[in-house]
Design a protein around this nucleic acid. Structure first.
Lengths: 240, 240
DNA sequence: CTGTATCCGTGTTGATACTG
DNA sequence: CAGTATCAACACGGATACAG
C-alpha cells in the first residue's frame, strides 16, 4: 500500500491507496472508505441535497458526509450542482459513470441477502427498497403484467412501471397509478420481503393502499429472495 | 450507525455497524473494512496460507491480516483448515457462500476499469489477472476456440480452458497445454491489456512462451476493456 | 517456517457544538 | 439549510517479540 499525494484545487491531501492495478482495488481506492458506497447508493435514483443524504444515512456525521462528497466529486463519481431558482439549493448528482455503479450494488445486495447474519428488520431507506426491487425482480413472475404503481415512502415518492417483464423506477408522484402504497420504507419492505400482511398493516395505520388490490397481491410475489447460505458458518471457531 | 457488541469465543469485540437493512450495508458490515475484500479476492481461486496471502497483498500488515481472517471466518465467508499431512499447514478457504461473492468483484472491476484515474501499470497479483480474464472474456471473440493454456505467474500456476466461448480457470500445472506463458502477473496483464508485444517481452527476459504462437496472438484479443468514462470529471470543483 | 500478540506513532472516524 | 471546528476514540501499519 502506498501514500499518495493528491492535490486538487486547494490544499494537498494524503490518501492511503492500495498499490494495486486490480480493478477491485482501484474501486476501493475510489469508494472504499466508510460510508462512500452508501452515499452513492442514495444518489442512484436521482440527485439529493446534503440534508436529505444526512437524513437517509442515519448515523453519518456531517463532517464525514462532507468529506465523502468532496472525495467522490474529485474522482468523478458525482458533481455538486446548484439548482436553478427559485430552488437555488445545492444538490449532489452522480455522473453518468457514477450511475453505472449500480451493478456493484446489485451484486453486493444479492450476496449479502444470503448472509446468515442479515437482519431485514433494521431501518431501511426508500432508495434501498426501490433498488432492491430493481435487483430482485423475477422477470418470469412479472411476465404479462402491465401496471403503474405509486410508492410513497416517507417523504419520497416513486413510480414503478411494470411492462414486458421489466421494471422501471422513477421519482415522481405516480398520478393515475393502478395501485398506490404509502408508508415507511421498512413497512413496504416487510410487505414484500417479510411476509407481512397488507390488511394488518393498514389496520395498524402503517400502510395506506389505494387502487387494485389484486395487483397488490401479485406485486408482493414478484421479488423472491435467494435462499440463505448454510448458517453453520456463523459460529465461533474452535479453540485452537 | 450503531456500536454492537459481539462476543465470540474469547474477549468481547466492538464493531461499528451500519444500522441498515439494505443488502449493500450488510455486505459492508461483513466485508467493508480495509483489506477485507482484497483478502476474499485472493482466495477466489482456491485456498491459501497466511504467508501467501501476505505476499500477494503487498502493504497489508500481519496483524491486520489476522484480524480480517478472524472476522471473515466469524461471519461465515471463509474457514480455517488444516491440510492433511505431510503438508500439515493451515490454509484459509472460502465457504461455498464466500465463493459466491465473485460477481461483486466483477462489478467492481468492470466499473473501476472505466475510471479516468485507473493506473494499470501498478503491481497486480496473479489471482487478479486470472479473475479479470474471467470477467472480461468476450464470448463472441472466443467463439469456436478450444484450447488449454498454462499460465505461470510468479510462484503460482494456472490452467485456462477455452471451449464453447467460455473460460474455465483452475490452479494446476497445465501439462499438455497448447500454449504456455511464464512471467510476472503484471507482464501478462500488460500483454493482454496494455498492448505490450510478446516478442519484446521475451527479448527482455520478462516472458517465456512455449507452444502455439498463433493461439497467443488470438488469446491477447479475447479480453477487450470497456472505454474510459469521460475524464472531465476528475477535475477540481470550481471555487464556490 | 507459520503465524500470533503487543507496543507505538499516526491518521481516520464520529459525536457534539457551532457558524454563515 | 449547509456545512466547519474541535476533540476523543479507534483503526491502521510497522516493528518486534513470541509460540507451535
Amino acid at each position: 500500500m502506498k501514500l499518495e499525494k493528491i492535490t486538487f484545487g486547494g490544499e494537498p491531501a494524503w490518501k492511503r491507496l492500495y498499490d494495486d492495478a486490480c480493478g477491485t482495488a482501484h474501486a476501493l481506492d475510489l469508494a472504499g472508505e466508510r460510508w462512500a458506497l452508501l452515499v452513492i447508493r442514495e444518489l442512484l435514483l436521482g440527485p439529493k441535497r446534503f440534508s436529505d443524504l444526512k437524513a437517509d444515512l442515519p448515523g453519518i456525521s456531517a463532517n464525514v458526509l462532507t468529506q465523502r462528497l468532496e472525495g467522490l466529486e474529485q474522482v468523478g463519481v458525482l458533481v455538486r450542482r446548484r439548482l436553478p431558482p427559485p430552488a437555488s439549493a445545492w444538490v449532489y448528482e452522480l455522473t453518468p459513470w457514477g450511475y453505472e455503479s449500480e451493478p456493484i450494488f446489485q451484486a453486493l445486495g444479492r450476496w449479502a441477502t444470503r448472509s446468515p447474519l442479515h437482519d431485514p428488520t433494521l431501518p431501511i431507506s426508500p432508495v434501498s427498497v426501490l433498488l432492491s426491487f430493481r435487483t430482485m425482480l423475477d422477470p418470469s413472475r412479472a411476465a404479462g403484467l402491465e401496471a403503474l404503481i405509486a410508492l410513497r415512502l416517507g417523504r419520497e415518492s416513486y413510480e414503478l412501471r411494470l411492462a414486458g417483464g421489466r421494471l422501471e423506477v422513477e421519482r415522481g408522484p405516480g398520478q393515475g397509478a393502478d395501485l398506490s402504497l404509502a408508508g415507511e420504507a421498512r413497512t413496504v419492505a416487510g410487505l414484500v420481503y417479510g411476509g407481512l400482511i397488507a390488511e394488518d398493516l393498514e389496520a395498524a395505520g402503517a400502510l395506506r393502499v389505494d387502487g387494485d388490490r389484486g395487483l397488490l397481491a401479485r406485486f408482493v410475489t414478484l421479488f423472491p429472495l435467494p435462499p440463505k447460505a448454510t448458517p453453520s458458518a456463523g459460529l465461533p471457531r474452535d479453540g485452537g
